[in-house]
């Protein structure tokens, strides 16, 4: 279960990265609402990118909490070799 949630979180992080880049706006356009029209007084497209990165930080922290980084217990690990 934890593993599935972790994978879900990592997929969501990927989606947020895609959303953080302002491909949805016309290139070269001035910010909607002026220079300070977005979140925290930033240009709107900058506010969206920053919101995505805040969300990624939270989700990634949760994903690490659900990640198992085991130390050797005597069993052979799957090391790809």
């Amino acid at each position: 279960m934890a593993s599935r949630v972790r994978i879900g979180l990592l997929v969501a992080i990927g989606v947020l990265y895609v959303l953080s880049i302002p491909w949805y706006r016309e290139a070269g356009a001035l910010p909607a609402g002026g220079a300070a029209g977005g979140w925290l007084g930033l240009p709107d497209w900058v506010g969206v990118a920053l919101a995505c990165y805040v969300a990624i930080a939270v989700l990634n922290s949760l994903a690490w909490a659900l990640t198992e980084v085991s130390d050797p217990n005597g069993d052979d690990e799957d090391d790809g070799s």
């Binding site: 290139a27 070269g28 910010p31 300070a36 925290l40 007084g41 930033l42 497209w45």
Partner: peptide, 21 residues
């Protein structure tokens, strides 16, 4: 404040606040 910083940047260098190409 941040809004004033954004406004000042827009006044001095409008290209700095535009949506990237």
């Amino acid at each position: 404040g941040l809004a004033a910083v954004s406004q000042a940047i827009g006044d001095v260098r409008p290209d700095a606040i535009r949506v990237p190409d």
